[in-house]
């Protein structure tokens, strides 16, 4: 663990409330660089909200989020791979168009994509083994292929931090292994990978670090140290909050 570098993402006292119910309450989180972190918790524990707060899509009611930007050279800081169902797959764009969206911040509105952009997009598609699908319409893709396209888009952004929301959920085995391989190679290159993971049985296998949460911070650290029966019980016991006594 690096003691000299600031954490990749520093979160203090994060609180997000929706319809007067706490979704994330007083959360502290220090995510170091160059790790592959799995965020685990039951449904409704605020995991996706946490991702969206980090990305700036949701505004928290209190708390701060600081992202270490000392080392990034591009405009994008964090790349995001959302859940598959967050997008309309009948939209008239090709696979390549979607991946090119990852380069939009590098292209001014009056410019066309440069050769460099095209090369990066081609490289990203190759990483996820979707090069043959570059000109296909996105409606022709299977679930696993859709996930790979999102990953390629994130790769094209060339950021140091990648955030993925349940990327292994509802996809075929081949895609699952492929995505894992890509993420692991990114980590070796020095990137920080943060994944909301849905499956407790594969956490040990995939992630060197784990964060357990259920609206509040329960445990963060090396996977083996964090995944104790006690911690798991604390995370998954339902309900965690007080019912209204009346």
């Amino acid at each position: 663990m690096s003691h000299l570098r600031p954490a990749a993402i520093t979160i203090k006292d994060l609180t997000v409330v929706y319809e007067e119910k706490p979704v994330i309450w007083d959360l502290d989180l220090l995510i170091p660089h160059q790790i592959m972190l799995g965020i685990v918790g039951p449904n409704g524990s605020g995991k996706t909200t946490l991702l969206k707060s980090i990305l700036g899509i949701i505004k928290p009611i209190a708390g701060s989020i600081k992202i270490d930007s000392a080392t990034h050279t591009t405009q994008d800081i964090i790349a995001y791979v959302p859940q598959k169902n967050s997008v309309d797959w009948t939209f008239p764009v090709s696979v390549q168009d979607v991946v090119m969206m990852g380069r939009y911040n590098h292209i001014s509105w009056y410019q066309r994509p440069t050769q460099n952009d095209l090369d990066i997009v081609a490289w990203a598609l190759e990483q996820v083994q979707m090069s043959n699908f570059a000109h296909r319409h996105i409606s022709e893709l299977s679930g696993g292929q859709q996930q790979r396209v999102f990953l390629a888009r994130a790769l094209a952004q060339q950021t140091n931090i990648l955030i993925l929301d349940e990327p292994f959920n509802g996809i075929d085995t081949f895609t699952e292994h492929l995505i894992l391989k890509v993420l692991q190679s990114l980590k070796v290159q020095g990137k920080t990978i943060i994944v909301v993971h849905h499956d407790l049985t594969t956490v040990r296998q995939y992630f060197d670090w784990t964060f357990l949460m259920n609206v509040r911070h329960i445990a963060l650290g090396l996977t083996d140290q964090v995944l104790t029966p006690e911690n798991i019980a604390k995370t998954f016991h339902v309900p965690f909050s007080w019912n209204q006594p009346q």
């Binding site: 609180t15 007067e20 706490p22 007083d26 959360l27 009611i61 209190a62 509040r216 329960i218 007080w242």
Partner: peptide, 26 residues
């Protein structure tokens, strides 16, 4: 109860909460 339960993560039952956070709930 909100003061109590959510302090578990901090291991500090006397952690102070921001008024904005409390107002959002109450």
């Amino acid at each position: 109860s909100h003061f109590y339960l959510f302090n578990e993560g901090k291991q500090d039952p006397f952690h102070a909460h921001n008024i904005a956070a409390l107002e959002a709930i109450g």
